[in-house]
Design a binder for these strands. Sequence first.
DNA 1: GCGACAG
DNA 2: ATCTTGTCGC
Length: 225
Amino acid sequence: MDLIIKHDWNISEVEALALQKELAAKVVKTDQFNEIKLIAGVDVAYKKDNDNLVAAVVVLDANSLEIVETATAEDKVQFPYIPGLFSFRELPPLIQAFAKLQHSPDLVVCDGQGYAHPRRFGLACHLGVIFDIPTIGCGKTRLLGEHQDLSPIRGAIAPLIDHNEVIGNVLRTQTRINPIYVSIGHRISLSTACDWILKLSPKYRLPETTRQADQLVNSTIKQLS
DNA sequence: GCGACAG
DNA sequence: ATCTTGTCGC
């Protein structure tokens, strides 16, 4: 896993906004990948005893959903949580975890929005662009945008719209369970992204990738405490 | 001015 | 995210 774009992370809020505007121009919104054999799920959690963040990456076989490899990293918080600047808080430890991987995933499912973002550059876009790999944004709650009511059945889908632009899809992954918010990260189309999320969510609300990453990051925090 | 606001 | 009481829906 090689970083294609490197930039400072110890920057001000104003500088972060300018950087988002610059990098957002590099997002590719169409399918640009070959066969997807390995899919990674990522998650980051806050460790309150030492004010650190713990990041976890889990690589799964795209067909069997069996775990192929995992990696974790711990780092100090160096940016506050600001809605719209989420990636500047969570990506530093995540990059460290990716650096430890022996396998390069062909697709990364992110815990957070992608294109469904005020400046169309959520965490999934940021991660995708700096590594230049296909990514999907997958959020449990809405950052912005409006949508119509959704059928209660698994597979129900509705466009998420902001200022007359479709910025993502609201997707029901389980019948009568709250839908999730899917958006483009990088090098993937919205429809292909939703196909993968449904395939990766046969049993639970969230994709298996996200579940495994969440489990790993929490067990890591418990173990280190 | 007030409310909303990924994790 | 995380903590936690009261309220609501099934």
